[in-house]
Computed example of a mutant assay.
Amino acid sequence: MKTFSSLMGNQTLLPIIQAATVEQGVNIAKAMHEAGIHLVEVVLRTEASLDIIKQIKKELPDLLVGAGTILNESILDDALKAGSDFIITPASSPTLLHALKNCPVPVLPGVSTSADILLATEFGYSELKLFPASLSGGSQFLKAMGSVFKSVSFCPTGGINANNKADYLNLSNVFAVGGTWVAPANWVESQQWNLITSACKDALL
Results as ranks from 00 to 15, higher is better:
Val152Ser: 00
Ala48Val: 01
Val177Thr: 13
Leu204Val: 10
Val65Glu: 03
Phe86Val: 10
Asn161Cys: 09
Met145Ile: 03
Ser49Lys: 05
Gly25Pro: 04
Pro106Trp: 01
Val188Arg: 02
Gly124Ile: 10
Thr180Met: 02
Ser153Trp: 09
Ser172Lys: 15
Glu23Val: 15
Glu47Ile: 01
Phe4His: 04
Gly178Met: 07
Thr197Ser: 12
Trp193Tyr: 03
Ser112Cys: 13
Gly179Phe: 04
Trp181Asp: 00
Ser198Gln: 15
Asn72Lys: 01
Glu47Arg: 15
Asp85Cys: 08
Pro94Asn: 04
Thr21Ala: 06
Ala91Trp: 13
Leu14Thr: 10
Leu195Ser: 13
Leu135Glu: 15
Gln140Thr: 14
Leu50Asn: 07
Gly158Thr: 04
Ala99Glu: 08
Gly68Asn: 06
Asn164Met: 06
Asp51Pro: 12
Val105Met: 01
Ala31Val: 07
Gly110Arg: 03
Leu7Ala: 04
Val107His: 11
Gly158Cys: 11
Pro15Val: 09
Asn164Trp: 10
Leu50Met: 08
Lys101Asn: 12
Leu71Gln: 12
Gly66Met: 03
Glu41His: 03
Ser153Asn: 15
Cys200Pro: 05
Ile117Cys: 06
Lys201Trp: 11
Lys129Arg: 00
Ser172Met: 12
Asn163Trp: 13
Gly66Ile: 03
Asp77Pro: 11
Thr197Val: 02
Pro109Gln: 04
Leu96Met: 06
Thr46Val: 01
Asn173Phe: 08
Ala48Phe: 00
Asn10Pro: 13
Lys2Val: 14
Ala162Gln: 15
Thr121Asn: 07
Thr46Phe: 04
Thr180Pro: 01
Asp62Ile: 09
Ile160Leu: 07
Pro61Ile: 00
Thr89Ile: 00
Asp77Val: 12
Gln24Cys: 04
Gln18Cys: 15
Thr89Lys: 10
Ile117Pro: 12
Ser112Asp: 08
Ser74Phe: 09
Ile52Gly: 00
His33Ser: 14
Leu118Asp: 14
Ser190Phe: 01
Gly158Gln: 05
Pro109Gly: 00
Lys165Ile: 13
Asn72His: 08
Trp187Cys: 05
Thr89Gly: 11
Ser5Ile: 05
Lys150Gln: 14
Leu128Lys: 00
Pro94Ser: 00
Leu119Asn: 07
Ala176Lys: 03
Gly158Arg: 07
Ala29Lys: 05
Asn161Gln: 06
Ile87Arg: 12
Ser134Tyr: 13
Gly36Lys: 07
Val111Tyr: 00
Ile52Trp: 03
Ala48Tyr: 03
Leu97Thr: 01
Leu204Asn: 14
Met145Asn: 08
Ile88His: 11
Ala19Ile: 08
Ala183Asn: 13
Leu142His: 02
Gly158Pro: 04
Asn161Val: 13
Ser153Tyr: 11
Ser172Tyr: 13
Asn173Trp: 10
Glu189Thr: 12
Leu118Tyr: 15
Thr95Phe: 09
Asn194Asp: 14
Lys101Arg: 14
Ser92Leu: 05
